[in-house]
Amino acid sequence: MFENVRVILAENDPLNLGMLEQMLQQFECTLIKAGNGQEVIDAISAHPQVDLVVMDLNMPVLDGYEVLRRIKQDVHWHDIPVVMATADGEEVAAVLELGANDFLAKPFNLCELRHRVMNQIRNKRLADFASNTNAVLEMEVAKRTAALQQALARALQSEYEISLRLGRAAEFRDQETGSHLKCISQLSKRLAQLARIPGEECDLLYFASLLHDVGKIGIPDAILLKPGKLLPDEFETMKEHTVIGGKIMSGARDYPVIEAGRIIALQHHEKWDGTGYPYGLKGEEIHIFARVVSIVDVFDALLTERVYKRAFTVEETTAIMMDESGKAFDPQLLELFFEHVDEFLALQGRIHADAVSVASITDIIR
């Protein structure tokens, strides 16, 4: 009927014990006898895969109440069915309240005894089957989840590689500024982390910031590579790199990195006070990604030599950028950035100490 059934039997009365043994033999079970309550606990400890405990309420050392309480309060044992044998009707309610699964009224009725025991063993086996099935399902879910996470990681890596190579397309046009792509990527992610932007968005920014200047592909060399300050009409043409970048990455809302890159490309030259380009966005109208990138982009550009400028010192860079707090830059983000400037300098890794004259942001970042 059932295979490998294990039953712990604790009964003081020899006559009742004989009846229980005779009945349990019908199930071809392994019978584990216990002479007192402590032996019941010891037997369960030694045989955790028990299918049923049949126990007299009145036992020495530990009575049935205490044994039942310990079984039902133990996280590893509470699912073991316990059938209590008692001759007192008032005791039935007490043991059921403590968690007993069933009771046997003395004197025993063999037919009733057989059915009650059989029901409890059946219920235990069904519960074990359900538990094992759930465990198998959980393992399968874990495997599939791990596989999905690996696939997502590969997809993100692919997006990163595509973004990096698309960003490098601008590098071939503007080799002296394109080399800072990875630096902008790392600094942007770190500033976002310090600003307590959610982790997934920090990773997204890490990828998307690579695309901030991709629109420079569409700017003529005579303007893009011109040493010195641009003429007004040349500067108007230079401004178009934001719109060009936005157009290159338009229509990709199903691809988070490209969509974030589009927003950054369009907005990273917007200014906190509304005097930026191309749309004159103001304050928090500017996406947080673009506000982050604008800070690290300017920071890296000021410290780096370009065809139209020498490298600025750290002190000069700090002074210029802090002067633009609340004008070009989000003041809270900028303050946070300079609270951790040593960390950013370490990440940026290219500190220049050349003494240069103070210049405006417009003259430095075109």
Rank of each mutant, 00 (worst) to 15 (best):
P220N: 05
P81E: 08
A87S: 15
Q73P: 01
L152Q: 15
T317R: 06
E335P: 01
Q49M: 07
E200V: 12
D13A: 09
K143S: 11
L224N: 14
L303Q: 13
E97L: 02
I361A: 03
K247Q: 10
D233Q: 10
H287I: 02
K124H: 10
E316W: 01
F172R: 06
L20E: 06
V54E: 05
S357R: 14
H212A: 06
R253T: 13
A353S: 15
L224Y: 02
I286M: 02
A222S: 14
Q186W: 06
C183Q: 09
V7L: 07
L110A: 07
L166G: 03
R173F: 10
P14E: 13
C183W: 01
L9M: 05
A10E: 03
E315Q: 14
L230C: 09
L164A: 12
I219M: 04
Q332R: 13
I248T: 01
R165F: 11
P232H: 08
D174E: 11
P60C: 07
N132I: 02
Q22H: 09
D323N: 15
H269G: 01
D88V: 14
G245W: 00
A359K: 14
E236D: 10
F344P: 10
E316V: 05
M139V: 06
I258A: 13
E138W: 05
V67D: 05
K282P: 00
T317H: 03
L303F: 07
L166H: 01
F27V: 06
M322R: 15
L104M: 02
E176R: 12
N16T: 08
D297H: 12
I32V: 15
R306F: 04
I184K: 05
E21V: 13
R154A: 14
E91V: 08
T313N: 15
Q22D: 13
N16F: 12
Q150S: 13
K72H: 10
A328T: 08
F312D: 12
R350W: 06
W77L: 10
V82Q: 09
I223G: 02
F2V: 04
G178P: 06
M1S: 15
A127V: 07
S45M: 12
E159G: 02
T30P: 01
G280H: 08
K327F: 09
D56H: 04
H115R: 10
A85L: 11
A34I: 11
L231V: 00
K226S: 04
L57R: 02
I71F: 10
A169N: 00
T86K: 01
L210S: 04
I258R: 03
S188Y: 13
K33Y: 04
E28G: 12
L281Y: 11
